[in-house]
């Protein structure tokens, strides 16, 4: 109130208007094209005022659209094509050279529980939604060139439309699964010194020696973190796009899309490798996520420390009250 009175006093005291009267200066006659070019070079939006309550409509020219188009039509195509085709090519090469990785000692016939039902169910929820997300996403990016000519516009639109719907809705199980996955497995995925050893040994893929590993080896930890962090980022940016203008403006959405696209392509590449090694690439691996029971020898070869740990746990589990032999 005091400030108000002060303002009042000031207004009354001085012929305030005289100070506010700005003589009209010559108008800026810089050419619109010039300004537009400058802004384009600077990458700035030309923003004004508009009476409708829609701030995005007040953007007169949005040169970033060009940059986004370049990203979409060059960078993303390139990254996507290189990543997806590259990985598929490498895997093919790998398969040609090494063939299927067998259990060196042959199946033992005895199994041990690697993943419980919750873990497996969650994995498949994430995996199945990921596959649909991947296919519908790849279709959005490449379908126009690869599928449209075959299917024709109407069928392709229907496919893409359903793909888009699936892409939007399956993001929820995917994101939920990621959260669960993180909670279930983060404990076993914290990197440690052993991972360096494992990596030095090339994960056993290059030589024939199997490096030691606990429940998850460095490669699996990599997949975990790629999935959780990459998937998280892809999901977050995806939600920015699914709720247009609720979270950010047009520039933010363009960035969100770029991050979403590139990360998704890289993730696709990584996950393709994961799928390979978890299925055709390695004997015994698929069991971990199908029945949850893995062959003892497979486990010995790939996760020796985990086997030891599990056995130790099992021993205590047999007779929790009993003292270990020779303890006295």
């Amino acid at each position: 109130m005091r400030a108000l009175l002060l303002a009042v006093a000031l207004l009354c005291a001085a012929p305030a208007l005289a100070q506010n009267t700005v003589p009209f200066t010559a108008r800026d006659q810089t050419s619109a094209e010039e300004l537009e070019l400058q802004r384009t070079l600077q990458g700035g939006t030309i923003h004004g005022r508009i009476s409708i309550p829609d701030d995005k409509a007040a953007n007169l020219v949005q040169p970033e659209g060009r940059a986004w188009r370049d990203f979409h039509n060059r960078t993303l195509y390139t990254v996507g094509a290189v990543a997806v085709c590259g990985v598929l090519g490498l895997l093919w090469l790998f398969y040609m050279i090494k063939g299927r990785i067998r259990i060196a000692a042959g199946p033992a016939g005895r199994t041990m529980t690697r993943f419980n039902l919750l873990e497996r169910a969650n994995h498949w929820m994430v995996a199945s939604s990921f596959i649909v997300l991947m296919l519908s996403g790849l279709n959005l990016t490449f379908g126009r060139w690869l599928i449209l000519p075959t299917l024709g516009p109407e069928t392709f639109t229907m496919l893409t439309m359903w793909g888009k719907v699936a892409h939007n809705f399956l993001s929820f199980p995917f994101a939920l699964g990621l959260v669960l996955m993180f909670l279930l497995w983060v404990r076993d995925n914290i990197p440690n010194a052993l991972d360096l050893e494992w990596l030095k040994a090339g994960g056993g893929f290059i030589g024939s020696r199997h490096p030691q590993a606990a429940r998850f080896n460095a490669g699996q930890k990599g997949v975990f973190w790629i999935t959780v962090l990459g998937g998280g980022a892809v999901a977050t940016t995806g939600y920015v796009l699914v709720f247009p203008f609720f979270i950010t403006d047009i520039a933010g959405q363009q960035w969100a899309h770029m991050i979403h696209g590139v990360l998704a392509m890289l993730m696709i590449a990584a996950i393709l490798a994961h799928i390979y090694i978890g299925s055709v690439g390695m004997e015994g691996a698929i069991d971990a996520m199908s029945t949850g029971q893995v062959d003892y020898n497979w486990a010995r070869e790939h996760h020796s420390l985990w086997v030891d740990e599990e056995l130790a746990k099992a021993r205590t589990a047999i007779d929790p009250g009993a003292k270990t032999a020779g303890a006295d």
Binding site: N59, V61, H72, T157, T160
Partner: peptide
């Protein structure tokens, strides 16, 4: 554009310099 083909993805809005 052909609205029967459009899927409402919003890509054109990202790319359009004029909103």
């Amino acid at each position: 554009h052909d609205k029967d083909l459009c899927i409402g993805c919003g890509y054109c809005f990202y790319a359009c310099p004029f909103g």
